[in-house]
């Protein structure tokens, strides 16, 4: 049972990190280029999952993704099953948990790249897309990797939003942190200890790795 929920958590967190990575790096690149009011609004929306109570975020997602919500209805019509209380909902919750870390850390790293290097690349004939891929992204890899690592740890341990939109269905949508809660309330101390140790150790390891990657000099060759 423990292995089953750990594996589900791992697959969910990896999928969520991959999606948050693509979305987050793209959004961070956009945020570091644009100016004006829209940037602040988008940045606030992306950071919201860090500060909103999970119940509020979970409720908002239920309204949008639920069986009668605008997106939930479309998904159910296309795929034949509801989005909420499914493994896909687990990934949605994990992605939202990871996204702010990826965006914030990547954005800071992109902003740190010496603008003269970007200017030099463009005078050498590189299009904005090539400048990003060949200069900005490699020089920001420490910050991007730190964001991905922290985002993964956050997705792995998500509780509130996961419970609200994916439920806590044993064998279907029960993740390690939900199983830990169940184990504590049912007095299964051994299960609680095992899950707590694995989740705690993974989180701290991610903080150590993420911190090291984030401190790495962006210009180290």
């Amino acid at each position: 049972m423990i292995l089953d929920v750990l594996l589900r958590s791992l697959v969910t967190a990896l999928s969520a990190t991959a999606i948050a990575g693509v979305l987050g790096v793209g959004l961070a690149a956009w945020l570091s280029r644009v100016q004006g009011g829209w940037r602040d609004v988008v940045e606030a929306l992306l950071t919201a999952p860090m500060v909103l109570p999970p119940t509020v975020l979970g409720w908002l997602l239920l309204v949008v993704l639920g069986r009668s919500g605008p997106i939930g209805r479309v998904v159910e019509a296309v795929f034949g099953g509801p989005l909420v209380f499914s493994p896909v909902a687990l990934v949605v919750a994990g992605t939202l948990a990871a996204l702010p870390f990826v965006v914030k850390s990547s954005r800071a790293a992109f902003d740190d790249v010496d603008p003269r290097l970007v200017a030099a690349a463009s005078t050498l004939g590189a299009s904005p897309w090539r400048v990003f891929l060949a200069v900005v992204l490699p020089l920001s890899r420490g910050g991007v990797m730190a964001g991905l690592t922290l985002g993964f740890a956050r997705a792995l341990g998500d509780f509130g939003v996961t419970l609200m939109i994916a439920g806590n269905i044993p064998g279907h949508t029960q993740t390690a942190s939900l199983a830990l809660y169940d184990a504590v309330t049912a007095g299964r101390d051994d299960d609680a200890l095992g899950l707590g140790l694995v989740l705690g150790a993974t989180g701290i390891a991610a903080l150590v790795v993420g911190g090291r990657l984030g401190r790495r000099r962006p210009h180290a060759w």
């Binding site: 003269r116 200017a119 030099a120 690349a121 005078t123 020089l139 210009h219 180290a220 060759w221």
Partner: peptide, 11 residues
């Protein structure tokens, strides 16, 4: 354009 800082790509 050659910059005062030269701006060689460090990576």
């Amino acid at each position: 354009l050659v910059f005062q800082s030269l701006a060689l790509f460090p990576h």
